[in-house]
Simulated scan of single mutants.
Amino acid sequence: MRKLKLIWDFRGPDALKIAEHHEIHLKDYVKLEKLNLKITGFEPITDLHAIAFMIVTEDNMKPIRDALKPHRGQVYMK
């Protein structure tokens, strides 16, 4: 099954701090919905851009996408 990386972008001087906090909400969602998802995270892109992300399988992407409204997504290659 193909894996997808759902991505939320944050920009500005506090982008990394906001992305780190957003990951907490992603983990809370996984726990609340009792999803079998293991990978969430955040990472800096530049000094003024950071992302939070969640790795999902293609079959459970649509309900998660509709509920959480990620900014973008891409195929996860790991």
Results as ranks from 00 to 15, higher is better:
Met1Asn: 03
Arg2Trp: 04
Arg2Ala: 13
Leu4Thr: 14
Lys5Trp: 00
Lys5Gly: 00
Leu6Asp: 02
Leu6Met: 11
Trp8Asp: 05
Asp9Ser: 04
Asp9Thr: 05
Arg11Thr: 14
Arg11Ser: 13
Gly12Pro: 15
Gly12Phe: 09
Gly12Lys: 03
Asp14Lys: 03
Lys17Asp: 09
Lys17His: 08
Ala19His: 02
Ala19Glu: 01
Glu20Thr: 07
Glu20Gly: 07
Glu20Ser: 09
His21Arg: 12
His21Glu: 11
His22Asn: 04
Glu23Asn: 11
Glu23Phe: 07
Ile24Met: 09
His25Phe: 13
His25Asp: 08
Lys27Val: 13
Lys27Tyr: 04
Tyr29Gly: 06
Lys34Arg: 15
Lys34Gly: 15
Leu35Met: 03
Asn36Arg: 13
Asn36Val: 12
Leu37Lys: 03
Lys38His: 11
Lys38Ser: 12
Ile39Met: 01
Ile39Asp: 00
Thr40Gly: 03
Gly41Ile: 12
Phe42Trp: 11
Glu43Asn: 15
Glu43Thr: 14
Ile45His: 01
Thr46Glu: 12
Leu48Ile: 13
Leu48Pro: 05
Ile51Ser: 01
Phe53Lys: 00
Phe53Gln: 00
Thr57Lys: 07
Asp59Thr: 08
Asp59Arg: 10
Asp59Ala: 09
Asn60Lys: 05
Asn60Ile: 12
Met61Leu: 10
Lys62Ile: 15
Pro63Tyr: 03
Pro63Cys: 07
Pro63Asn: 04
Ile64Cys: 06
Ile64Met: 07
Ile64Arg: 04
Arg65Cys: 10
Arg65Ala: 15
Arg65Trp: 12
Asp66Cys: 06
Asp66His: 02
Ala67Lys: 01
Ala67Phe: 00
Lys69Gln: 08
Pro70His: 06
His71Asp: 15
His71Tyr: 03
Arg72His: 12
Gly73His: 14
Gln74Ala: 15
Val75Ser: 08
Tyr76His: 09
Met77Leu: 13
Lys78Met: 04
Lys78Pro: 14
